[in-house]
Structures are given as structure tokens and as C-alpha cells.
Design a protein around this nucleic acid. Structure first.
Lengths: 207, 207
DNA sequence: TCAAATTTTTACCATTTGGTAAAGTCACGA
DNA sequence: TCGTGACTTTACCAAATGGTAAAAATTTGA
């Protein structure tokens, strides 16, 4: 018996909200929350500023909407870690998946990084309510693999941190990497390097 | 024959510039460049805003001064990588050193991260002129170690990226880590984990 | 087709923010 | 102790920015 009328969004609404969120992703990830302006987002979306505010209640709502959607996509590959699969291959697959995401969605990665670096003032709850339970569950999965002797003894939590940090680094520190690397194809070498590193770390030694 | 009168800074000048830079580090690392305000910095430093601007030409100058000094400290441990030392121990020592820095100077790490994430618009030159040559040199050192069979065959550049990303992660993603870890002492476990990971990666296998 | 609902534009506004001018205060060497 | 230069405060300001009111235009459904 909700009094709130839930109307299905019109085509115009869908299109414009998408335009706005796309433009906002660009602007927020490039300039940070504080540095971003509604004018810049409006310009990017091809709309007027008051028109923006017809679709979103304010700057913060745009930002939070963006981040909420993002967190879903971001933690999704972790969900797919299959307890019944081969431990080493599951985890190496996860590494590659995360690396691919970093290279394909750098703006998303940067937006997320920026928010966390600044203390997650606007998505702290999301982390606690959605990410934490999943994280604990996956740590348990990894620990079970170790206990079964199917994976080298590693610290599950810190393993995940290492996977996150090394892969996201290629998105978040893009500029630094491109300054330092004269390289042809950073992706291929990054991929090989991470595969090598995590395979050595994770492969159990029969004793 | 410079016409610019270089005066040695008075005690007051030294003290106040330090107060300002300390406060600015807090504010910039917490709110980002765009989100930071001169008022917040002034308040943190216990000075009036016009008084701030007596010591620095503007917001940007404070920020750039901070970052320039930071980059020095930041790349310093890399300088110390000794070509004549034991390769594995040198690199593991570097890992620990970087990890310690992340835990002791999180604000510095975040400030740097924030700048890079946003495309290093204000210290790009610093990276090119100071970091790049050092980076190339150290990659060569690592490659030499590998060629001498004293280190497992790894990609030197991407090894360094992995060291940077995993260690700095503990500073930059502090909030996320503290949400996910119920843990007593993250430092000790992080240290052990990274030691384990990089030792396995780097130790040469006699063939 | 035409009225109701939705969407967009125009014209604003209050606050915040980086920055300045200039008067005043303080410290220090002669 | 007094004048000079270093430092600080007061009183501002112009531009930028997040946001609003209301009229105008457009779309939609009967």
C-alpha cells in the first residue's frame, strides 16, 4: 500500500538519465567530487543545468547513483569465484577478469578509487552492507581450499587485497604507467606478469 | 648574476610555511584538490586566509609545493636499491620500506594517489623528469640481476608496479581495508603476506 | 484534436570561494 | 627608541557554483 507512485520511466527519461550518468562519470572521475561542476556535467550531457536537476535532485544524488551502480559491477566478478572449481585456475581467472575490467573501464575504477581514497564518505554503508559479507564468504572459500591442500597457504584477505591493488593499479595509475613505460602493449605484459606472480604464490607445493 | 634577491627565510616564515603545508596536506588528501578550500587550510594552520596568501601565491602553489616535496620522499627508497646487494633481499627490503611508508605516511600516499588518478595535471613534468630516469635505471639493475641468474625471470617494470600497488594500497584504500578486516594487526599480516608473495616470485629456481 | 502531463528554457539568486588592497601591528637592528 | 621592513588583520570583491521559480514548449493519451 505504498503511496509513492512508481511510474515506469519514459523513453526520454531513460535516455536523459543515461546521458547524464555517462557525462557525470567522465567529469567525476577526472575532477573528483569536489572539482566536478554541474555545468561541466550538463555540458557533457548536452543538457541545460536546470534540466539536469529535473532528473536528479542534486550533485550528490548523481554521484551516489553512479557509485551505487558501479559497486555492483565492480564486485560482481568476485561473486563468480566458484568453490567447486579448480582453486588456482579460479583465482587466476579472477585476476585476469579484474585486469580486463581495469583496462576496459578505467573511469569507473578511478571514480571508485577516488571515493575510497577520500574516506568513502558517501558509500561507506554500501561497503559494509554489500561488500563485507561477500568478502568474508570468499575468504572462507579460499581458506577451505587451503585446508584441503588444494592451494598454497596464503592469507585469504590479503591475497584479495593484492589482487585488487595490482589489477586496479593499471586503471588508477594509468598516467604514471604511460609515462614510465615506453612499451608497446602494457596489457599483454601486465597480464603475463600477474599470471606468473599469482601462480607462483598460489600453486601448492606437494609435501 | 641573478637579480632576484634570495633572502634566507626568517624563523616566522619557516614556522608558518610549515604550519600551512601541514594543514594543506590534511585538507588536500582528505578533500582532493577541487574539494579543498583555502579557508579550511587557513583554519587548520591557525592563520587567516589573507595571511596564507602572504606566504603562498595561491591554492595551486601550496598544492604543487606539497607534491614536489612529496615526490622526493616518495621515490627515495627506490634510489637505495643497491645493485651490489643480494637481489632478493634488496627487493624484499624495498617492499617492507614502502609498506612502512604507507602505514606511517598515509596522507602523503593519498595525496599522491589523488593527483595521479586525476591524470597528474600538476606534476606530470615531475614524473617525466625525475621518476622516469630513476625508474629506467632500476629496471636495468633488476634485469642485470636476472641475467646473472640471481633473480627469477620477472618483468622488471611490472614487478615495480606490483610492489608500488600492493604496498600503497594499505594507505590509499585504508577505509576499505578497515571495513573488511575485523583484524587485530593488519600491518603484521600485510607484511608477512607481501614477504611471502614476493619471495616466491623472486627467488630463482636453480636449473 | 486537444487537454493534461511531461520536459525544457529563461531568468534568477544566495553562498562559497579564490583572491586583493590597504591599513595596522610587530620585531629588530642602528 | 625609533624607523624600517616583515608580518597580520580588516574589509572587501568578482567569479563560480549549486540550486530554484515559473513560464514556455513539447509529448502523450484519450
Amino acid at each position: 500500500m505504498s503511496n509513492i507512485p512508481i511510474k515506469k520511466p519514459s523513453r526520454i527519461q531513460q535516455r536523459n538519465r543515461r546521458l547524464i550518468l555517462d557525462a557525470a562519470l567522465e567529469v567525476f572521475s577526472r575532477d573528483g567530487y569536489g572539482g566536478a561542476t554541474l555545468d561541466a556535467i550538463a555540458k557533457g550531457a548536452g543538457l541545460s543545468k536546470p534540466n539536469l536537476l529535473y532528473y536528479f535532485e542534486g550533485k550528490t544524488e548523481i554521484y551516489v547513483t553512479l557509485l551505487s551502480q558501479l559497486v555492483e559491477t565492480w564486485i560482481d566478478p568476485l561473486v563468480e569465484l566458484d568453490p567447486d572449481g579448480d582453486p588456482v585456475e579460479e583465482l587466476l581467472g579472477y585476476v585476469q577478469h579484474k585486469l580486463d575490467m581495469s583496462l576496459e573501464l578505467p573511469a569507473e575504477s578511478k571514480l571508485f578509487a577516488g571515493e575510497i581514497v577520500q574516506g568513502a564518505p558517501r558509500i561507506g554503508d554500501h561497503l559494509r552492507n554489500e561488500l563485507k559479507p561477500l568478502f568474508d564468504q570468499k575468504c572462507a572459500t579460499i581458506q577451505a581450499w587451503i585446508d584441503a591442500g588444494r592451494l598454497a597457504a596464503v592469507d585469504p584477505a590479503h591475497l584479495i587485497f593484492s589482487i585488487w591493488s595490482t589489477t586496479q593499479h593499471y586503471a588508477d595509475f594509468e598516467v604514471q604507467i604511460s609515462v614510465l613505460l615506453d612499451d608497446e602493449d602494457p596489457h599483454a605484459r601486465a597480464s603475463r606478469h600477474l599470471e606468473q606472480m599469482f601462480r607462483k604464490l598460489l600453486t601448492p607445493t606437494d609435501t
